[in-house]
């Protein structure tokens, strides 16, 4: 059939390409990050982001040294992991928290042999570790433009009984709710709140052909339809929490998502389904992190079982 032999994705072996790719993603994150910095104040956000990036790079170097692996700590991938992780943190968290989180994130990548080999998205593993280990800090949110703590709209939904209490929070004014949710005037993680910035980032990623449309579209589409089905305001649902951030920047990670467009549609659907199920039925108010991680586990099956990708390693092909 084909003479090409493909190893595990991604197929980036070229150092220049890795650097280019990682920098494109990092640049596309900037608008959302700047939105978050503006909304929550630089004092609560900038240190988290900088410490996270630096600690990710350092822990990558240290781990590679300890495990006697080739040093690639400046190829931008560790920095990107740190950046992504910082943007999923609540603003104003103690500064040691992103340090611990990035160490775990980088560990979860190096343990499998480094970039390209890891079955789980490192930033998400790091965040999940932080949520499970230090839940008090990871669920203390901040009100925009102030230092006061507040709940996220999704926490209101989960703890106080559905859309009613969310609407009550916005004094029953639906357009006002949409507007403030869209502009990010709500409690939430640093990078997830400023929707215009996220959309701008998506455009950059699509135009530079860094990602394809399949995963974001099927992910968000599923979330929209299913939350409608379960009686959640669908627009509210895709504007709230980290769904958009996850669908654009986390679920589309080359290494941990399927290669073929058709499988990417299934993958996006799975993420959306799990995300809504966790939000509506499970204990956590938000499920993006865990939904994508669960689909990460399924990715190898999707790639090999549903349809064998072109160039699937046939025994003896060389």
């Amino acid at each position: 059939m084909s003479r090409y032999v493909i190893t595990a994705s991604p197929h980036i072996r070229n150092k220049v390409n890795t650097v280019f790719l990682m920098n494109t993603v990092s640049i596309s994150l900037l608008p959302a990050a700047m939105g978050g910095i503006f909304i929550f104040g630089w004092k609560n956000t900038l240190p988290v982001i900088l410490v996270s990036i630096v600690s990710a790079i350092l822990s990558e170097g240290l781990l590679q040294k300890m495990l006697k692996m080739p040093l690639t700590w400046f190829d931008g991938s560790a920095a990107l992991t740190g950046f992504l992780l910082a943007l999923t943190c609540p603003p104003g968290i103690p500064i040691w928290l992103p340090v611990v989180g990035t160490i775990f994130a980088i560990f979860s990548k190096q343990v499998f042999g480094g970039l390209g080999q890891n079955p789980f998205n490192p930033a998400l593993i790091g965040r999940a570790f932080m949520v499970l280990s230090f839940p008090v800090y990871m669920t203390s949110w901040m009100k925009p433009f102030s230092m006061v703590t507040s709940s996220t709209p999704l926490a209101l939904y989960a703890e106080n009984g559905g859309m009613k209490s969310v609407l009550a929070f916005f004094q029953g004014n639906v357009p006002a709710m949409y507007k403030s949710m869209f502009l990010g005037i709500r409690g939430g993680s640093i990078g997830e709140v400023f929707i215009p910035g996220l959309l701008l980032g998506l455009v950059v990623l699509l135009l530079t052909k860094t990602i394809k449309w399949q995963i974001p579209v099927s992910y968000l589409g599923t979330v929209f339809l299913l939350s409608w089905l379960f009686g959640m305001d669908p627009v509210f649902s895709i504007l709230s929490g980290g769904v958009m951030f996850g669908a654009f920047f986390m679920a589309t990670d080359y290494v941990t998502s399927p290669m073929l467009p058709k499988n990417q549609l299934i993958y996006g659907f799975g993420c959306g389904l799990l995300n809504v199920l966790i939000r509506v039925f499970a204990n956590m108010p938000e499920g993006t992190t865990f939904a994508i991680l669960l689909m990460n586990v399924v990715t190898p099956i999707l790639d090999r079982k549903i349809k064998k990708p072109v160039g699937y390693i046939v025994d003896g092909a060389k």
């Binding site: 079955p119 999940a128 199920l277 966790i278 499970a282 499920g287 865990f290 939904a291």
Partner: peptide
């Protein structure tokens, strides 16, 4: 070791389903 660690990461993902059902 890697099998245990992979199991740990799958278990992390499963923790998100706490409370389902």
């Amino acid at each position: 070791p890697i099998v245990f660690i992979a199991a740990s990461f799958i278990a992390i993902a499963f923790m998100g389903l706490q409370g389902l059902g």
